[in-house]
């Protein structure tokens, strides 16, 4: 049992890492990866919401009538998103302002509903917890990787610390919308090269 739980956790870190292997949740991936700080903040929020919603959905999976399960999942997810929203406003207000509407938009992030429907509604609580944590951490890693590239080239900094020194001319294409698309596309391409044939 422990072994299976570990497996569910680890698969989120590589085999099914969103948004590369599981092409879901692209909008926040593009929008919040201007800086590593934003990416980590978003990642934490997703880990919390995904883990909690997976556990709750899995715990009540036999009580929900089939026809309204999606509506119930959405209520569960939206509840945890609102909790994150309130807590972030209370404790990390500047980060909350930076992430803006992308915090409430976690509700419609396909990863959450996708995991609730495809995994948590069919598996036990422990496995769902492992799955939520794994996918959440994988997503955070992916966000941070993309954000590192964009921040280093776009601002010349990493987590607000200068990398190239003052003479560096920032390549601001990277932190604008087009740069986000191209950068993610190329990262996806690199990931595909590693895929087993």
């Amino acid at each position: 049992m422990v072994k299976r739980a570990v497996n569910e956790f680890v698969k989120g870190l590589w085999e099914e890492i969103p948004p590369f292997r599981l092409v879901l949740g692209l909008c926040p991936t593009l929008a919040v990866t201007k800086t590593v700080e934003n990416a980590l903040g978003m990642g934490m929020a997703v880990i919390f919401v995904l883990t909690c919603s997976n556990v709750i959905v899995s715990a009540v999976r036999n009580l929900i009538p089939k026809q309204v399960r999606i509506a119930c999942f959405i209520v569960v997810i939206a509840t945890f998103v609102t909790i994150v929203e309130l807590v972030m406003q209370a404790f990390t207000y500047p980060l909350y302002l930076k992430l803006g509407i992308f915090i409430p938009l976690i509700v419609v992030n396909c990863i959450l509903l996708g995991r609730a429907e495809a995994f948590a509604s069919k598996n036990g609580v422990i496995y769902s917890l492992a799955d939520g944590l794994g996918i959440g951490i994988g997503y955070t890693l992916a966000l941070s990787a993309l954000a590192s590239i964009r921040e280093i080239f776009g601002y010349g900094t990493f987590y607000h610390i200068s990398v190239f020194g003052p003479s560096f001319k920032p390549f601001s294409f990277m932190v604008k919308a087009p740069g986000a698309f191209v950068c993610l596309g190329l990262m996806l391409c690199i990931m595909n090269m590693f895929k087993k044939k």
Binding site: I64, C72, V75, V87
Partner: peptide, 17 residues
């Protein structure tokens, strides 16, 4: 079912708020 879910969630949120 939906009503009960929404009620629990509303209560929880009111508390956090």
């Amino acid at each position: 079912a939906v009503t009960i879910f929404s009620a629990i969630s509303g209560g929880l949120l009111a508390f956090v708020r």
